[in-house]
Amino acid sequence: MKIIACIKQVPDSEAKVRAEGGQVSWGDAPLVINPFDEYAVEGALQQREANSGSTVTALCIGPESAKEALKHALAMGADEAVLVSDPALNELDTAGAARILAAAIQKIGADMVVFGRQTLDNGAGLTPAQTARVLGWPMLGLAGSIKVQDGSVVVDRVIEEGRQTVSATLPALISVVQSIGEPRYPSFMGIRKASKANIPVWSLSDLGIAAPAPVVKRTALMNPPVRETAVEIISGETPTDIADKLVDKILAEKVL
C-alpha cells in the first residue's frame, strides 16, 4: 500500500505569537512540524506496519526551510519526502493548498492519504475535506483508529457525540486526531537517515498546474484585547469559609 502523510511547518506552540506591523511575528521561536500532523505521520507509520509491503511518503507545501519538518517525518520513520515549493505560492488559501496537494498526491500515487486535523497557524481544518473533494475520494474525518482489510478501510471517527465506525473503499483520504496514538520519537538511525536525505523539490510546473488564485484573503491582523488578569486569591480559615467567599464573588460576576 502506498501511503502519503500531508504535513505543514508552523511556529512552535510555545511561541509568543503577535501581530506586528501588519505581519505575524513569532520572534526567534523555532518552526516545527504542525503538532496535528505528527499524528498523521504516526497514523501512516502504523498502517505501514500493519500492511506489509507498504511505504510512507511525507508531503509538504512550503518554503525551502520546510524541509526541516519533512526531515522530522523521515526521522520518525517515513520512507520518502517531497516538498512542493514555488515562488508563485506566497498567497495560498486552503482550497488552493488542496488543489496542489491533490496534484502532488496523483503524481506520487497513493492508496491512502493521512492528514492532521488542522494547522496551528491558519487553523481552518478545511484542507483534508477540500483535497478529498478535488480528488473525488472518500473522506474519513477525525479518525481515532484505522484498519485496512481487503481494499477497504474502516475508521473510528471521534466526534463530540461519541464514536462512529465509518468505512470506505481505497483509495481514501483520512484525517486523524490525538487518539490515534502518541507520535513516536525520532530514532537515532532515523535522525541519521533524515540528515542525509535528499528531498526532491517540485515546482508548480512539475505538477503541471498554475498557482491557484486565493478566494479567502486576510485584510487585517490584530492582537486580541489584553485582559486584566490580576488574580484575586481567596483564602479563609476552612474550606467552607473559602467556598462561601468564592461563591459570592462568582455570583457577583453574574455569569451563572
Partner: peptide, 19 residues
C-alpha cells in the same frame, strides 16, 4: 468582513471571501 482566530487565538485576523 469576518473576524477569526489564528495561531490558536494568539492573533486575530480579519478576512474576506471573494467567491
Amino acid at each position: 468582513i469576518a473576524t477569526r482566530p489564528i495561531y490558536e487565538g494568539k492573533v486575530l485576523e480579519k478576512s474576506v471571501c471573494t467567491g
